[in-house]
Nucleic acid binder design. Sequence first.
DNA 1: TTGAATTTGTTCGTATGTATT
DNA 2: TAATACATACGAACAAATTCA
Lengths: 254, 254
Amino acid sequence: MNPARPPGTTAPTGSTGRRKARWSTVEEIKDYIREHGLRPGDPLPTENELCEELGVSRSSVREAMRTLSSLDIVEVRHGHGSFVGGLSMSPLVSGLVFRGSLNRDGTFRTLREVVQVRIALDMAVAEELVSTYRGTTNEDLRELVGRMRRRSEAGETFVEEDGEFHRALLSQLDNTVVRQLVGAFWEVHTSVVPMLGIATSAEIATTVEAHGEMIDALEAGDVPAYHEAVLRHYAPLQHAIEQGLAETEDGTHD
Amino acid sequence: MNPARPPGTTAPTGSTGRRKARWSTVEEIKDYIREHGLRPGDPLPTENELCEELGVSRSSVREAMRTLSSLDIVEVRHGHGSFVGGLSMSPLVSGLVFRGSLNRDGTFRTLREVVQVRIALDMAVAEELVSTYRGTTNEDLRELVGRMRRRSEAGETFVEEDGEFHRALLSQLDNTVVRQLVGAFWEVHTSVVPMLGIATSAEIATTVEAHGEMIDALEAGDVPAYHEAVLRHYAPLQHAIEQGLAETEDGTHD
DNA sequence: TTGAATTTGTTCGTATGTATT
DNA sequence: TAATACATACGAACAAATTCA
């Protein structure tokens, strides 16, 4: 396709050997991690060492590292070094939050869809959670619910406690992908909600108490009751979302 | 360029006016998209124009664009220009496929967890699918099942037909996030499976017929039957995964 | 506390491949 | 085929953050 392009060899111009595309630099760094059996947190060679190892310039290595760090496959710490990343769902969060921030209508739609996904995942883990929590008592979780109730009654938000609750609830879950996915969608949820300026209705008490009902159901080993508690947990928010969507469709906002 | 410091920011440190980190260049490009009301597919300024607009160097813009393109927030077409990306779930796919490729054990575990997520999502959309398909006839979907059956009987794979089937099935789904998520996990699934070299068992016929049963259940408006068909659909693969996991734990492979 | 060494972050200049016209 | 516009790549030099003596 191209006139002078000797197969895979270097230096059409002498000094600079333009051997491979940047895309393949990304793949080569992935291969390096695989072939050296590195695990999350393990240190990577310095950028200069990678340049030698892969035979490309530092700029190319840097762009590849940017790509990999935005996917959480590597983690770069300024002035310190590069490490294998946590392989989390953070890129998913970035993308969805950005989508939600594009316009007011998109914010409501994204949030509605995200909530539906959260419900689906919460429902799906019910059996496994019940098998873990049946017959146990969980003072730490109930204490979190108490903190939520006090904050709610004081007219404050309780995002921190809510996150801690859901994180603790799933901490025993064996499925890493599901656990990270639930966490990611929780994060999208809490990032997008403030964009809407939803008035915290009196209904929010329902959400707080639903957390307690979730614990009750799990300890009692009652899957259907857990399902109902999950639905009640999201009901006030869903109500606010539908109300907001109706208002924007009326042209009340841009 | 150094002396002129246009907008409201102050010089952070003494000597040269290095105003913002690369991270904020990413955010500024996002802001540009938001503030100009751009939608997926719309063209972005050239890299040089963005350099002027944001007051940073080409390299910084390039690295930021790399980050954004790996998140599918922008799409770069070589020799043509940059455009707003499709906001898909492709970063999720990259990360999970990489995790699955790290070692043989991780491959099996990742696949098992991915299948569990697929099941959860398929279950969750049952109601909405039933309300869409109840009372309809779907020759196109049944034709796909027929193609799968013929290929399966000929000892061939039918990845293409399977993807087309699931894509078509969800095409009417109103929830974009769920649809993309299902597609993403299908992609991870089909990318990871070949790494295992699972022998295509005779059980694979069960999967083919389960596709047909899914259509039957949807057209009949029978949610529980759909749930059962979904489970049968995944059963042969789950069996193979558990078998593979048991073998690797025996130390048969590394 | 200071300061040197190490490593990543940013910028400029230049050269070259590639798609469109 | 030639010209243009643009993305891609390289490398040197300097800035900033972190660590450790």
